[in-house]
C-alpha cells in the first residue's frame, strides 16, 4: 500500500460520476452477501479480508416438565440443554461457513433464551476469508462474536480469534426452614448457603468455558458476557451463563497501537434527571 493510494480521494464527486459511467460496470463473478456495514467491510479490507456470505445456526432443546421447581445441587438437564443448544447452533453456523469456503465467521449476533420448557440459541454472522483465498480445512475455521471492526483491530495487534467458548450452570437455591427464616428476620446476616449455591453455579460455568477455551489452544477469552441471577420463571433456581471469543497471539509478540486522544465536539447527553428530585 502506497501512501498516495491511501490518501482520501481528493475528488469524491468525480469518483461518483465515474461510478455511473456505462463502461465501468464489472459484472459477473460470484455474488456475496454480508450483514457488515460498509465501514466494517473497509476495515476488513484494510487487513486483507473480505466477506463471503451471511450464515446462521439455530438450535432449540426441550427440558423436562417440573424441572425447575424442586431438587438439590445442579439442574443437570437445564445445563445440558444450554450446552447442547449452543454446541449445535455453533456447529450449524460452522457448517454453513465451511460450505462457502470461509475461513471464519465474525460479528455473530447471539440470541439465547432460557424458558421453563425449552432453551433456544440463534446465531447469525458473516462468513469471511482473506481476499481471494481458497477453502481451508474446516477444523481451522473460527466463529466469533467480535464485530468486524474488533476483529480487524485484534488482527492488527497480532492476535487471532479461535472460536466461541461457552459455559453455563443452573442450580437449585436451597430453601430456608421456617425457623431459620424467623430468627433471621431482624438480623444482618450473610445467607451462606445461598452464596455457596451461587458460587457453585459460577464455578461450574466458568470452568466449562475455560475448558472449552483450552481445548481450542486459546490463551485468552475476551469480551466475556455474563448472564447471572435468579430465573424469572422459577424462584428457587439460579442460573449462571458465560460466553466469549477465544483468542491467541498469532504474531511473534503483541503489537502496540499507540492511540492518540480526541475530544469529541458532539453534544453530550443531558445528565440532569428530574426523576431523582422526587
Amino acid at each position: 500500500m502506497s501512501d498516495v493510494a491511501n490518501d482520501r480521494s481528493p475528488d469524491l464527486a468525480a469518483v461518483v460520476r465515474a461510478a455511473f459511467a456505462p463502461s465501468k460496470s464489472q459484472k459477473g463473478g460470484a455474488s456475496t452477501t454480508s450483514d457488515l456495514s460498509i465501514d466494517e467491510e473497509l476495515n476488513l479490507h484494510a487487513i486483507g479480508w473480505e466477506p463471503v456470505e451471511l450464515v446462521s445456526g439455530y438450535s432449540v432443546f426441550s427440558t423436562p416438565v417440573g424441572l425447575w421447581s424442586w431438587g438439590q445441587g445442579e439442574i443437570v438437564a437445564a445445563t445440558e440443554a444450554h450446552a447442547h443448544a449452543f454446541a449445535n447452533a455453533i456447529s450449524r453456523i460452522h457448517r454453513d461457513a465451511a460450505a462457502v469456503g470461509a475461513h471464519g465467521v465474525v460479528g455473530v449476533a447471539i440470541e439465547r433464551s432460557v424458558y421453563s420448557t425449552y432453551t433456544e440459541v440463534t446465531l447469525l454472522g458473516t462468513a469471511v476469508r482473506p481476499i481471494g483465498a481458497g477453502a481451508i480445512n474446516a477444523s481451522g475455521l473460527f466463529v466469533s462474536d467480535l464485530s468486524a471492526r474488533d476483529f480487524s483491530r485484534l488482527m492488527i495487534a497480532g492476535w487471532q480469534p479461535l472460536g466461541l467458548a461457552t459455559g453455563a450452570s443452573f442450580v437449585y437455591a436451597p430453601r430456608r426452614t421456617m425457623g431459620a427464616a424467623l430468627t433471621q428476620q431482624s438480623q444482618n446476616i450473610e445467607l451462606t448457603n445461598y452464596t455457596e449455591a451461587m458460587y457453585n453455579a459460577r464455578e461450574m460455568a466458568m470452568e466449562r468455558m475455560q475448558q472449552s477455551a483450552l481445548s481450542m489452544n486459546g490463551t485468552g477469552v475476551v469480551e466475556v458476557k455474563v448472564v447471572e441471577g435468579p430465573m424469572t420463571f422459577a424462584s428457587h433456581a439460579i442460573g449462571f451463563a458465560v460466553w466469549g471469543t477465544v483468542v491467541r497471539l498469532a504474531a511473534q509478540s503483541h503489537r502496540p497501537m499507540t492511540p492518540s486522544m480526541v475530544v469529541s465536539l458532539d453534544d453530550t447527553r443531558v445528565a440532569f434527571d428530574a426523576a431523582t428530585l422526587e
Partner: peptide, 9 residues
C-alpha cells in the same frame, strides 16, 4: 452477480 451489503435479518 452483484453483492449484497449491510444486510439486516
Amino acid at each position: 452477480g452483484d453483492g449484497l451489503h449491510g444486510v439486516d435479518v
